[in-house]
Structure formats: structure tokens, C-alpha cells
């Protein structure tokens, strides 16, 4: 009996028609494509995009050159040099992130005791020549200045889970 039903099912293309009915239904289904430059998917406040170095409200940079981020970075993308400033505080003279090496894991952000290095929501950036994606301290500070409002808001929102 089983053999006979299978025989007829094969000859009447039962399974093929079933498969085509499925794709036929999807032909009319609502399309899920996000048309990127015009439409964007929502982002989490924990989104890990391009890095930034933050400053305090008085303009003083937060980073104290403890090198915890450099130590924790699994991709060895961060390079820091430290020296004493005129006022006797410990500050970085060099703070570079090689974005080509960076894997955007967010560990530098986790490690930072003063919330200096953070990752912003910016993910649409590019480099036109070799070295364009090697971010230096002034570039990172500029990123921090530019996006401070959004960064502060995201940190505040995340604070209650920490």
C-alpha cells in the first residue's frame, strides 16, 4: 500500500507542487529588505562602533594612561605612550587604535576605570588610503567631542544594568 501511494505521489509530482506552493506563498509575503541608506535598523545603546576618547565637562580629558585597555585588547590594536604633564598628572602622549586590527569586542570600554575610551554608534566610515583607519589621539578626542551627547545618553541608559 505504502509503495503504491509513494508511486502515485511521485508521478503526480506531489512534493514538487508542495514546494512550489510554499515559494508561491512567499512571493506575496511582505518583504523584509532594509534599504540601507534610506532605512536603518534600530541600534542598541550598547552598540559597538567607532571608538572615541571622552572628556569631562570642563574639557579635561578623562584618560589617565593606565594602559588597561592596551593590556586587555585581544587584537593588540591599541598603542599607548604615557608621560607626566606639567601639572604633575599622568597623561597619554600617544593613544592610537588601529581599526584594521580592532575586532570591536568592547573589552577596552569594559576595562576603562574612568570611562574614557568608549565605542560610539558610528559604523558608516571608511578609509580611502592605507593608514586612514589608523586613528590617533586627536582624531579619537574629536570623535568624543562630536558625539558626547549621544555617548553620555547611552552610558546613562546602560548604567542601571551595571
Amino acid at each position: 500500500m505504502q509503495i503504491i501511494t509513494n508511486f502515485f505521489k511521485t508521478f503526480l509530482l506531489y512534493e514538487l507542487v508542495k514546494g512550489m506552493a510554499l515559494t508561491g506563498r512567499y512571493f506575496f509575503a511582505r518583504k523584509i529588505t532594509v534599504q540601507f541608506p534610506e532605512e536603518k535598523t534600530p541600534q542598541s545603546f550598547r552598540f559597538r562602533g567607532l571608538h572615541a576618547l571622552r572628556t569631562y565637562a570642563n574639557g579635561e580629558e578623562r584618560c589617565i594612561g593606565c594602559k588597561l585597555c592596551e593590556a586587555v585588547c585581544p587584537a593588540l590594536a591599541i598603542k599607548i605612550e604615557v608621560a607626566e604633564r606639567e601639572d604633575g598628572t599622568r597623561r597619554t602622549t600617544q593613544y592610537d587604535i588601529d581599526l584594521v586590527k580592532c575586532i570591536f569586542c568592547g573589552l577596552c570600554e569594559e576595562a576603562c576605570p574612568v570611562d574614557a575610551i568608549v565605542e560610539t554608534r558610528v559604523f558608516e566610515y571608511h578609509g580611502e588610503k592605507r593608514g586612514d583607519l589608523y586613528y590617533t589621539k586627536p582624531m579619537l578626542l574629536a570623535m568624543g567631542q562630536k558625539h558626547e551627547v549621544q555617548i553620555a545618553k547611552d552610558r546613562a541608559e546602560d548604567a542601571k544594568y551595571r
Binding site: T23, G24, Y26, F27, K31, I32, T33, Q35
Partner: peptide, 13 residues
């Protein structure tokens, strides 16, 4: 277009 629609995409536009 047709294959896109059947894969719930919109195809070239």
C-alpha cells in the same frame, strides 16, 4: 525580481 520576491527580498531596485 521573481527569485528575490520568493526569498522575501525586493531584488534590484
Amino acid at each position: 525580481k521573481v527569485i528575490g520576491y520568493m526569498q522575501i527580498r525586493i531584488g534590484p531596485n
